[in-house]
Amino acid sequence: MISGKGGTGKTSITASFAMLARDAVVADCDVDAPDLHLILEPEIIRREDFSGGKLARIDADRCLACGTCSRVCRSYAITRDGPGNEHTKSTFRVDPIACEGCGVCTWFCPENAIDFSPAVNGEVFISRSRRGPLVHAKLGIGQGNSGKLVSAVRQAARHYAERHGFKRIITDGSPGIGCPVIASITGANAVLIVTEPTMTAIHDMERVAGLVARFRIPAMICINKWDLNVALSERIEDNARRLGMSLAGKVEYDDVITDAQIACKAVVEFKENGCAAQVRSLWHTLENSLLGNGQA
């Protein structure tokens, strides 16, 4: 589940799919802003530290303030504002948020005063939710490597599914087209792009559709809030056809989606008709067309 533009309804629709699917592991790959757990109420059964890379740290006792590290660092991560010692009034210090973990400073430090060891950037959770297994994650504050964390979530979901006989993985992706999105769709059998009839969402949908096409993954479109602008919805359908994607379904603009979220429920368990029925039929269309082979 991806969208290009944020806030088009990926997570609301994924939560409903989680309610409707049998035999599915749900993976929350939107590690920048993970929200599925608010609906699925997971109980964590296993947690693992995630390390996406290493981090440099200068030993203030051994630093002679020669400045080599700061000269070779291209991330502007090293400044001379560390504590002083017997050799110098102020040592160099690595800003852990700006550090890219390239290790070049460590390599060149003539005093071997820079430690370079794996950083813990976050945690991956495997949970029992009120609707089947959920794999999710928490990235440490200010930590990078979200693409690698997404890959870790995806792999954990896959292992869990294989070990416990689940046929499907439903992945909630993040907005954009960058590394977390690329990591989310890697290995997917099919992609659903959730869009809405706004000029901005159309622009973003076409960009993300271009990305999906490069990965040669079959994609379908869902138009959320379709009646907000009927003319634009028609345009999305035309564009989708042109891009070789079929329409999986349309969901109307209704406050009930927000009301369901406020009640921490998926819309399909909150209401029977209207947009809840449309989300149900969306799921059935997906099941029949994209997921028919039972691999996705």
């Binding site: 997570t11 920048d32 979200s146 406020i262």
Partner: peptide
């Protein structure tokens, strides 16, 4: 700025004087 809370956002807000956080009144 882009959405999220990782590298692209950190880069966008680096050296700014003030950040306006836009939110919506939902649990998400």
């Amino acid at each position: 700025s882009p959405p999220g809370t990782t590298c692209p956002v950190i880069e966008s807000v680096r050296d700014v004087d003030y950040v306006i956080l836009v939110t919506e009144p939902t649990p998400f």
